[in-house]
C-alpha cells in the first residue's frame, strides 16, 4: 500500500465526515423549514438571514450543554450507544460512490472510500449494526420509555432488514454484482435502463424499508414523541443526544444515495450532468422523508409488524421468484 493511497483515503474520509456532519445540521434546518411551509408557518426566522444560522445556534447549544449521566444507568453502555449510531451511519458511507470519478489537478479521484466487491452488502450490514445504538442506549437508560423504544427498535430494524435484503435481491440477481459502482454502471445507458422500470416492486419495498431503517415518520414509533417521549434519547443530553441526531440524518442522506444509485440510475455514465442528476435524485428522496413527515400519520407498532411480515415480505419473495423465472426462461 503506497503513501498516496493512504493520504487519499484519509482525505476522503475527512471530507465525507465534514460534509455529511454539516449536511446533517443543514438537514435539520431544511426539515424545519419544509415542515413549517407545509403547515403555513415560517419556521426559524430570527437567527441569521431567514434563520440560516439556527444550525449554528443549535450546534453551540448541543456542544456546550451539560452531559448528564443519570443515576442507575449502565454507564459505559449509556456512553457508547450514541457513538455506535453516529459511527455506523458514517461507516456505511464508505462503500457509497457519491460522485463519478473525476480528474482534479491531473490526479484521478475516486469519490468512494472503498470500492469493495460486496458494497451493498456492507452498507446494509453496517446499517444493521446501527440497531445497537438505540437498542443499547434504550436498555441502559433505566427509563421505561427508553426500554419500550429499545424493544421497538430491535423489532422494527430486524424485521425491515428482511424487507430491504429481500427486495434488493431481485435487482442484484439482474446486475450480478454487489458493488454499487457495478450496479450504477449497469444503468449507465440512460433513463430507460434504470432498474426502477424493471423492478418497480423492489423499488417501492426498499423505499418503505428505508423509512423503517431510518425511523422516519410513518414508522417513527422508535422515538415517537407523543407516546414514549424521545424513546431511546429521553435520558440523553448535550452532544450525546446530538450524536444520535447526526446519525439519524446522516443515515437519511446515505439511504437516499443508496436508493438513487440502485434504482434510479445513480450518476449514469459519469458525466458532470449525471453527477448533478444524482444530487437531484438524492435531494428528492431526502425531501420525501420530510414531505411524508408533514403529510402522513404514524402507524402502530403492531400494524408495522403486520405490514412487514404479512404484506411486504410475501411481496418481496414473490418478486424474487418472478424475477428468477423471467431470468431463467
Amino acid at each position: 500500500m503506497d503513501m498516496a493511497f493512504i493520504i487519499e483515503t484519509i482525505a476522503k474520509i475527512v471530507v465525507i465526515l465534514l460534509v455529511f456532519s454539516a449536511l446533517a445540521g443543514l438537514g435539520t434546518y431544511f426539515e424545519r423549514k419544509v415542515l413549517a411551509f407545509m403547515q403555513r408557518r415560517l419556521g426559524p426566522m430570527h437567527v441569521g438571514p431567514f434563520g440560516l444560522l439556527q444550525v449554528a445556534a443549535d450546534g453551540i447549544k448541543l456542544f456546550t450543554k451539560e452531559d448528564i449521566i443519570p443515576q442507575n444507568v449502565v454507564k459505559p453502555i449509556f456512553k457508547i450507544a450514541p457513538v455506535i449510531t453516529a459511527a455506523t451511519a458514517f461507516m456505511a458511507a464508505a462503500a457509497i460512490p457519491f460522485w463519478p470519478e473525476f480528474t482534479a489537478f491531473g490526479y484521478k479521484v475516486h469519490p468512494i472510500v472503498a470500492d469493495i466487491n460486496v458494497g451493498i452488502l456492507y452498507v446494509l450490514g453496517i446499517m444493521a449494526i446501527g440497531l445497537y445504538g438505540p437498542l443499547l442506549g434504550g436498555m441502559a437508560s433505566a427509563n421505561k420509555f427508553s426500554l419500550i423504544s429499545a424493544a421497538r427498535s430491535a423489532a422494527v430494524f430486524i424485521s425491515y432488514e428482511v424487507i430491504s435484503g429481500l427486495s434488493l435481491l431481485a435487482p442484484l440477481m439482474m446486475v450480478g454484482s454487489l458493488s454499487l459502482i457495478d450496479i450504477n454502471n449497469y444503468q449507465a445507458g440512460g433513463i430507460g435502463n434504470w432498474i426502477v422500470w424493471s423492478q418497480p416492486v423492489a423499488f417501492i419495498l426498499f423505499w418503505i424499508a428505508a423509512f423503517a431503517e431510518t425511523g422516519r415518520t410513518p414508522f417513527h414509533l422508535i422515538a415517537n414523541d407523543h407516546e414514549i417521549i424521545d424513546g431511546f434519547g429521553t435520558e440523553y443530553s448535550g452532544m450525546r443526544w446530538g450524536l444520535f441526531f447526526i446519525g439519524e440524518y446522516a443515515n437519511m442522506f446515505f439511504i437516499s444515495f443508496v436508493i438513487a444509485i440502485i434504482f434510479l440510475g445513480g450518476f449514469g455514465d459519469g458525466s458532470i450532468a449525471g453527477a448533478f442528476q444524482l444530487l437531484l435524485k438524492v435531494s428528492f428522496f431526502f425531501f420525501f422523508f420530510l414531505w411524508t413527515r408533514a403529510a402522513w400519520p404514524d402507524v402502530r407498532p403492531d400494524q408495522l409488524m403486520w405490514l412487514c411480515w404479512k404484506v411486504l415480505m410475501p411481496l418481496a419473495v414473490v418478486n424474487i421468484v418472478i424475477t428468477g423465472l423471467v431470468m431463467m426462461f
Binding site: 419544509v34 407545509m38 403547515q39 403555513r40 408557518r41 415560517l42 414531505w291
Partner: peptide, 19 residues
Amino acid sequence: LFVGLWVVMREMIKFDIHT
C-alpha cells in the same frame, strides 16, 4: 396517502403563511 401528500405540497406552493 397521495391525497395527504398533495394537500401539504399545495399549501407549500401556495405559501400562504399565517405566522
